[in-house]
């Protein structure tokens, strides 16, 4: 008799476990609350790409020959792409490494929280912060550097999927790279160096027609180059297409590369994610 009673109770517990999606939403709200309470982090996260946009777009402002745009205009979509990557790849790569080091992850693993809820929470966090970052850069770009908001629905549609796929791919890569640093202290250096290199070879700081082809080809293996290219396609006039390697925006190829990175990044996360530090066994 006792056996039956206990078994029923255990089953009832299994049935009443809260859903991963629901907890994921709760975690997202919690992550955002934590993020916005660290005021210096908020200011620097959002200010960084804005300051860089201001510097580059003000220093390099000449007309680009034969493309019908100014160099300043080129920097607006480029910094937007970098901003998306910094709020996803960089912030997750660093913060998860620290959470692992400080045993926040281990504590979560000791509760019945489904692992997917943790990742959902992070996705909500980067979605909101990424949108805010993009909005700020767009505001600066349209008011100071003559970038026009797209007038047709097709371009807005391109913008939406480039944002979502780019953000997702970079977030997954950020989760994956968080397992590389040995401690929370080294996380910033480990994450920032590859991000900086990618920004140089993907056409963020330096126009793509100035970068050597072989560097550009390495950059083309990663999402950032395609995010920059796609956002140029959304926010620059078609006359600027001549500046691209292929002489075209290549939206189809961009979708393919970013989509592939989402799938590959997910696989990488599932294979490499650790709840504990290496030295904790």
């Amino acid at each position: 008799m006792t056996t039956t009673v206990v078994r029923t109770r255990a089953d009832a517990v299994a049935e009443r476990l809260p859903s991963a999606f629901g907890i994921g939403l709760q975690r997202g709200a919690l992550e955002l609350r934590q993020f916005f309470r660290q005021r210096d982090q908020v200011v620097f996260t959002f200010a960084f790409p804005v300051v860089f946009l201001f510097l580059f777009a003000s220093i390099f402002s000449d007309d680009v020959e034969g493309a019908g745009i100014t160099a300043s205009q080129l920097y607006v979509p480029a910094m937007m792409a970098a901003g998306i990557m910094s709020t996803s790849f960089q912030s997750l790569g660093i913060s998860i490494a620290i959470e692992r080091d400080e045993k926040v992850l281990r504590r979560l693993r000791g509760t019945p929280m489904p692992p997917a809820a943790y990742f959902l929470g992070k996705i909500w966090l980067v979605l909101v912060t990424g949108l805010m970052e993009t909005a700020v850069l767009l505001l600066v770009g349209t008011t100071l550097y003559d970038v026009d908001l797209p007038s047709d629905a097709t371009r807005w549609f391109h913008f939406a999927w480039i944002f979502v796929l780019g953000l997702t791919a970079c977030a997954l890569l950020g989760i994956a790279i968080s397992s590389v640093p040995k401690s929370g202290k080294s996380a910033t250096s480990v994450v920032v160096l590859p991000f900086l290199v990618l920004q140089f070879i993907s056409g963020v700081y330096i126009a793509i027609d100035t970068i050597p082809g072989w560097m550009l080809n390495i950059g083309a293996l990663f999402p950032l180059k395609w995010m920059c290219q796609g956002l140029r396609g959304v926010f620059l006039p078609d006359s600027a297409r001549v500046l691209e390697q292929a002489g075209d925006w290549e939206f189809g190829r961009i979708a393919l590369v970013l989509g592939a990175w989402c799938v590959g990044g997910l696989a990488l996360c599932l294979l490499t994610f650790r709840w504990k530090n290496r030295r904790d066994g």
Partner: peptide
């Protein structure tokens, strides 16, 4: 350990940290 099992075991570790901003 399944989720249901974890929900029946409480853990207090030797060295813990909690989200400082909450």
């Amino acid at each position: 350990g399944t989720r249901a099992w974890r929900s029946r075991v409480g853990i207090v570790w030797q060295d813990e940290s909690a989200p400082a901003e909450l």
